[in-house]
Write a protein that binds this DNA or RNA. Structure first.
Lengths: 240, 240
DNA sequence: CCTTGTGAATCTATTCACAGCG
DNA sequence: CGCTGTGAATAGATTCACAAGG
């Protein structure tokens, strides 16, 4: 669609705000569902309805990647998916190491969301001798003492108990991991250049209970506060 | 510590912004860790360092709950925990139903973050006959066809495969659940008065890979973009 | 005529900076 | 003094509203 001429700016020169970074994968998912349903063209209005956001927001978000829409028509579903995937490095293949192969770790490794989008689990670690040596999918679980030999992995997932999480994070960082996804209910401390995100059941439940409670209290009348609409992985800021 | 006098305003009249709602449980967790370590008084500066945020933000967040600090000294750790807990309805007991008892569901039910903070799993459902009837902790898994008999549960957790998630969400809402936490990689549609939050591995990984990629590209020099610091469960807005 | 793409307006959140109190 | 609590300033995100393109 674009024939990048020498000297012209790349298709995507702009800086993308964090809020948008979190929404784009959501659009991508919806687009995938639409495409599977045979929808080859989609308007910002439709996409917005599916994502439960404002249509202007969808357009602004998408416009940050480039001008991929056709006025009067909308966006080409497949093409838009490809553009988002490209921006998110889904064309690259990412090796991921998962540490802590309990129920959670196993669930993560087998999860639908993992295999898709170019994420490949290349190493699994646990400390439990009864787990070490077993296979989860095509990968065999190694003992955590083998972690120092890990190479070429940029993304690490921590799914250990809270008590072990910091130690594991340190080990992953030491071996060159640059991005961590922490499922342990513990604030981690990592060097400032390591990207750290948390997924935390307990905090999610507390947020739900906060709004639930607010509602029961306030709604002696009827006006539900219904927070922003809440959802799909936002991204505040925290760390150890 | 406070002796509420008749006629005076409640300790917490102000409206709490969503961004703050997501951070408060993080502070609560840190405070708990500090308290266990014997720290009985904490300054906004210390708390901010632990949470990787600005100290002014910590103070503003906490001030929304009331004036609980002592100038020149800081905050009383235990008291602050109690105040946050109260604001989050952790004094109440919340019944939670979990649907989808695969590895993920089992991991969630057994997770450390669940039992703490007054969340009590009171019902488990699955569709797999080989899982129905088994016990996870003190609760026995029921068949999803039993869901319509569910009563008194306000919070539901969806940990089914994506294909079943919408149906399960509908069933939960039908039976009076007001807040949903969805782990299935699928955008859900619920009535506007139902609070919905997503926890999504795939999207988290994509966000990591986005920033990772940005870094490798930009850092021909050295300036790492290091996003906002990223972390601990934010809360944007999405839905079906 | 319909839908994008985007400046301008608005709303929300963060950070600064300091008065006020223990 | 030191640290909280908070107005005022700044930065960021969302929404509006419309010109421009197919």
């Amino acid at each position: 669609v674009s024939t990048p001429r020498e000297g012209e700016p790349q298709p995507r020169p702009r800086r993308i705000p964090e809020a948008t970074v979190v929404r784009l994968p959501v659009y991508e998912r919806i687009l995938g569902e639409l495409l599977r349903a045979g929808v080859t063209t989609v308007s910002s209005e439709q996409l917005a309805a599916a994502a439960r956001v404002n249509a202007a927001k969808v357009r602004k978000d998408l416009s940050l990647l480039g001008s991929f829409g056709t006025r009067g028509t909308g966006y080409d579903t497949a093409f838009l998916i490809a553009q988002i995937d490209r921006a998110f490095g889904v064309d690259r293949d990412w090796s991921v190491a998962v540490v802590g192969i309990g129920n959670l770790g196993r669930a993560l490794v087998n999860s639908e969301g993992f295999s898709s989008h170019g994420f490949r689990v290349t190493a699994l670690f646990d400390i439990d001798p009864s787990v070490v040596g077993t296979a989860v999918g095509p990968v065999t679980v190694q003992h955590v003492s083998e972690m120092p030999r890990l190479e070429g992995v940029r993304i690490g997932v921590v799914s250990t108990p809270a008590a072990a999480a910091q130690e594991v994070a340190d080990a992953l960082v030491a071996v060159g991991v640059r991005s961590l996804l922490n499922f342990a209910p513990r604030v981690l401390s990592v060097p400032p250049d390591v990207i750290l995100r948390y997924v935390d059941l307990s905090i999610e439940l507390q947020v739900l209970s906060f709004y639930q409670r607010l509602r029961s209290e306030e709604s002696g009348g009827g006006g539900v506060p219904v927070l922003r609409a809440v959802g799909l992985m936002p991204g505040p800021e925290m760390g150890a």
